[in-house]
Design a binder for these strands. Sequence first.
DNA 1: TCTAAATGTCATATTATCATGAGGTTATAG
DNA 2: CTATAACCTCATGATAATATGACATTTAGA
Lengths: 149, 149
Amino acid sequence: MAILSQTSEYALRAATVLAQHEDRGPVHVAVLADALEVPQNYLSKTLSQLARVGVLDSVRGKHGGFQLARPRNEITLFQVVEPFERFESVRRCLLGQPECNAKAACPAHAAWSALGDRVVRFLRHTTLADLAKGHTRWPNRAALRGNPG
Amino acid sequence: MAILSQTSEYALRAATVLAQHEDRGPVHVAVLADALEVPQNYLSKTLSQLARVGVLDSVRGKHGGFQLARPRNEITLFQVVEPFERFESVRRCLLGQPECNAKAACPAHAAWSALGDRVVRFLRHTTLADLAKGHTRWPNRAALRGNPG
DNA sequence: TCTAAATGTCATATTATCATGAGGTTATAG
DNA sequence: CTATAACCTCATGATAATATGACATTTAGA
């Protein structure tokens, strides 16, 4: 019961770091992967997908990397996570009833769909700015600064 | 983003039907699988697991099947779903922070852990009786009655 | 006791997710 | 122009969830 996939969490972590580096130029995938302790090639593929949908900019060549494509207060967690999740399935009836809505509700409908809605609403209403402003004890900041090792 | 696994949903659907048949003897897996439109062999394995942990009784031989091991108002959804979920991971930090709790919280901690708690609380506080009492349009009741075809 | 009907168990197939590795493509720096 | 450092793409492997099929085991009833 993880709610979000591993890949989505990687994307969120990376996006949070990029939000903290806003307007300071692109950050190398290698640095991000090291700081977040995430496999580099996998993160590369993940962030490329986010670039393709317009959440990130990718800069190729020397001094390249990834950066936010828009101001951090205009990027919601939902947008970061959307390419890696199938949000239709959150609306699936808990009891598998083919049609389950306010009119033809299974006994769990009201409670269960409220839970799904809460999750989606959180993701839609929270921006990277909200996450970046807080002070995390994570990621590994030494790695971000280019610590040897 | 499915919150619960497919297997858990099968278990919940089957348990709900058994709760509606409380004290009317065991129900064949074949009948359940037909009524719920779930693969029979897979459901068989799933229900056997629930029997092993004491949620269901399995009755072998002719006129066998599965039935609730306890009154339906004493079986929570959590108990039905627990064997198929890893509830530890619901407590995982959204941003992957190794330690994330009230003392050392990531910026998403309060909101995210509240969402996980709500899901768990719903599963712990809702019993099969709650689901059985409501009137679902599901499962296929013709199949439950032994309809030909 | 024999047979049929049911669960129990095991092996295997399928699919999606997660991850790794090699080599191609692009762009900067000198 | 060349070399280097970065992202990009593709191929492949590992793992877990989902699903199927064959056969063994158990039991009721004739």
